[in-house]
Design a protein around this nucleic acid. Structure first.
Lengths: 165, 165
DNA sequence: TTTTTTTGGTTTAATAATGAAACCAATATA
DNA sequence: TATATTGGTTTCATTATTAAACCAAAAAAA
């Protein structure tokens, strides 16, 4: 990666990990059950040195766990940690968006379904503590405890803009 | 972008648009109400030539709409289209993941809250047609109508692996 | 047991992308 | 009328990516 973001915003931080052309595909393959270097490489067509780099940083970041398999040799497996498995949500969100706005209805390469009923799942939503879906319009982003001055200003500013309207 | 993915999977397709260090930050700023070139540039610290490139492709992709503002001059605004606004879901999913696994509880720079109650929102979920949240374990990815042989094989293979267990 | 193949990389060299700075024309603002 | 701002483009040095060659250890095949 060519420049690292040092904003405290979690999006910027996440981009330091995922802000490239390959990492999400590696994660995707992991969800499909891929765990070996050569399998990742074949399935996504990434150059070996890049895959090597990416996997190292993903291991560093605690997203993959690297294990020795096969006695005490040079064979390894890469598995998602809980932190990595939690990427299921953003990954699915991207998939659903792409299905709707890029592939289009009837052209989706991969669908999400409910296991029991087999029904297709097409929407994702924030849910309240009591388990109710929240409409996008009912969601507000606010500065959190880790905000810096820039973020505080930004939300202050956003509030003022709304007031004026 | 250095290589475009030509897999039919929506994740790969989406990476052709978002698979870089900056694009999600541009989208983020748009959600915060930013619409002008110079504002994007200041807020995220991106080089002007890169911002120019990125905005062009986002306009091409139908994610931003570019409008003339200020009589008939060289002043423009960039606003999210419905396709762009729908990126709210993946963006929030990434934010929540980052808040939980990078920032950590009590260090979040930006929080999502329910507008009426002010309560913090920390989880996102697939919802069924009837509006009920679906547990991750109850979700299954399957090949869709737009799948190619590679994807068909992959899911066939995943099914066989499960059978063996 | 020997040979061949697979695995999981590293190294190298060419090409492409990025980043920072300089530049610029049209328009707003003072 | 003079100055500043906007929304870029151009240039050039630095960094990242790609493809290919190479390699040692281990596994599989002969």
């Amino acid at each position: 990666m060519t420049q690292t973001h040092n904003q405290p915003c979690a999006i910027a931080q996440a981009l330091n990990i995922f802000g490239d052309n390959w990492t999400w595909l590696i994660i995707r393959e992991a969800f499909y059950g891929v765990s070996r270097f050569s399998e990742f490489q074949r399935n996504i067509g990434i150059a070996k040195n890049l895959l090597s780099n990416r996997l190292s940083t993903l291991v560093e970041q605690g997203i993959f766990e690297k294990k020795n398999v096969g006695e005490n040799g040079t064979r390894y497996s890469y598995h998602l940690t809980p932190k990595g498995a939690a990427l299921r949500t953003p990954l699915f969100a991207i998939l659903l968006w792409g299905n709707e706005y890029i592939s289009g209805d009837g052209n989706e390469a991969v669908l999400l379904t409910e296991r029991n009923t087999g029904r297709q799942l097409t929407t994702m939503s924030l849910v309240s503590e009591s388990g109710e879906p929240i409409e996008p319009n009912d969601v507000r982003a606010i500065a959190g405890p880790g905000a810096n001055q820039e973020i505080l200003d930004k939300f202050e500013n956003a509030r003022n803009l709304k007031k004026q309207k």
